[in-house]
């Protein structure tokens, strides 16, 4: 009898959790940690946007706002792990921000603060990937921001406030 009661109780708790799980993910775009519909990689073949940060010298500043391919990136790629910054955070910051208010811009600066304190000149790029007509991946790199210790310049094509 006790075993049966315990089983009924276990089933009830699991099913009520399942209902709450369903309600939370249905009303929060599939995510309410730790509940999720696990949609990672569900959109195969869709274009994507990532980010990369280049450390440049002053001579390269002239080429600031040129969209380029990987071989055309100026300077040296900054290893964000060494700054304890996850590249996903900068990538999502760039792709999910529509209007670049001063606060949003300083948010990107804050993530790169350790590098800027060392007087580095940084160019933040958004990498855009897609499949070409013949199903080959193609990549382009669009510059978003130039940062130095005391300067922030945004690409004139970005929406700012």
């Amino acid at each position: 009898m006790e075993r049966r009661n315990s089983l009924t109780k276990s089933i009830k708790i699991t099913l009520v959790t399942l209902i709450i799980y369903g309600l939370l993910v249905a009303t929060h775009l599939g995510e309410f940690w730790p509940f999720s519909i696990y949609p990672m990689f569900s959109q195969a073949g869709n274009p994507w946007k990532r980010a990369i940060v280049q450390e440049i010298n002053r001579a390269e500043i002239d080429s600031l706002w040129k969209t380029t391919d990987k071989n055309g990136l100026p300077g040296k790629t900054v290893a964000l792990n060494e700054l304890n910054v996850n590249t996903n955070d900068i990538a999502n910051y760039l792709s999910k921000t529509e209007v670049w208010t001063p606060k949003k811009q300083s948010g990107v600066r804050k993530l790169l603060q350790k590098k800027l304190l060392k007087q580095s000149n940084l160019l933040v790029y958004q990498a855009r990937g897609s499949l070409s007509d013949n199903d080959e991946p193609k990549l382009e790199f669009v510059p978003y921001f130039y940062f130095s210790a005391d300067t922030t310049i945004s690409n004139p094509d970005l929406r700012t406030e």
Partner: peptide
């Protein structure tokens, strides 16, 4: 891109 960005 992600690995380049993370590790250089």
């Amino acid at each position: 891109v992600d690995v380049s960005s993370s590790t250089g």
